[in-house]
Design a protein around this nucleic acid. Sequence first.
DNA 1: ATAGATAATGCAATCCTATTGCATGCAATG
DNA 2: CATTGCATGCAATAGGATTGCATTATCTAT
Lengths: 139, 139
Amino acid sequence: MSPNIETMLIEKGIQPTAMRMLVLDCLLKQSSATPMTELESELHPADRITIYRTLKTFEEKGMVHAIDDGSGATKYAICVEDCSTTGHHDLHVHFNCNICKQTTCLPNTSVPELKLPEGFVPAELSLIVKGVCPGCSNR
Amino acid sequence: MSPNIETMLIEKGIQPTAMRMLVLDCLLKQSSATPMTELESELHPADRITIYRTLKTFEEKGMVHAIDDGSGATKYAICVEDCSTTGHHDLHVHFNCNICKQTTCLPNTSVPELKLPEGFVPAELSLIVKGVCPGCSNR
DNA sequence: ATAGATAATGCAATCCTATTGCATGCAATG
DNA sequence: CATTGCATGCAATAGGATTGCATTATCTAT
C-alpha cells in the first residue's frame, strides 16, 4: 500500500483508520468508477456497512464523488485534483460504456456553458454520456 | 379526459387500453417529471405493477422518457415533439430543484457539443442540472 | 500513561424501488 | 364462436440504501 495514503486522508480531514486506508487504497487501484459490490468483494471479508459508511464519509469530505450512471448502483471515484481547489466537485463528464458497463471519468472533457431559462439557478451538474469506450470499440 | 389521448397512443403504436389512457392522461397533467409513487397515489386504486409495466411500454414506444435524477426513484415525462422526429430522445436538459425536489424538462436548453477523448463513441447523453427552480427562488 | 469522551466498526434489521412468475381477463381475428 | 395473444392483477422476490444499537478503537486532556 502506498505510504501516502494516510497523508491523503489527513489532508482531507479524514481520520486515517485501517479500514479507511484499505478502502482508499482499493479505490486508487481502480481504472474506472467502482460500485459498492466491487469494493465489497475486493475488500472481503470487510463489513459491507462499514464500506458504505466509509464512502459516505469520503464523499462528504471531498475525497471521492458518487456517480449515478443509471445502472442502479451508485459508483464511486477518487476526486481529481481540481475538486479541492475550486470547491466544485464532479464538474467533469462521465462516460458509461454500453458494452463493458464501466463508467470512466473524463476530467479533460469540460462541461460547456449552459444557458438556462429565466429563473433557474444552477448549482451542481451531472453529465453522463453513454456509448462505446475505446477498449470495447477496438475489439 | 382529452379525447385525443386514444389517438396519441395509437400514433405511437400502443394499444389504447383504459388503463393506459388513464396513465397517459395523468402524465399529461403533470407539470414536472413524475415518479411512480406519485402516479400510484393519483391513480389509486390502480395496480402498482400495471402502472410500472405501462410506463415501461410507454418508454419503449417513445411516448415517455425515464429520468434518473439521483433521487433514487425513476421519474417519467412525456416526450416532447422533437423526440419522434429526430429519433433521438431525451436530448434536452433536466433540472432538479434542490428545494422542492421537482425535476423539470428544459426542452429549449440544448446540450452543447462535446469533444470526447479519442476512442469514445457517444450514443446517448444525460444532462442533469441541480439548483433552485424559478418557483422556489421567488419565495 | 490513564480516564473519559468521541468516533469508528460490525451485526442485525428494515425500507424502498425495481422486477419477475403466474393465473386470470379482455379483445381482436378468423 | 373458438383461438390466440396481449393486458392486468396479485404475490413474491431481488437488490441497493439506510438506520439502530452495542462494541471497539482512537483521541484528548490531565
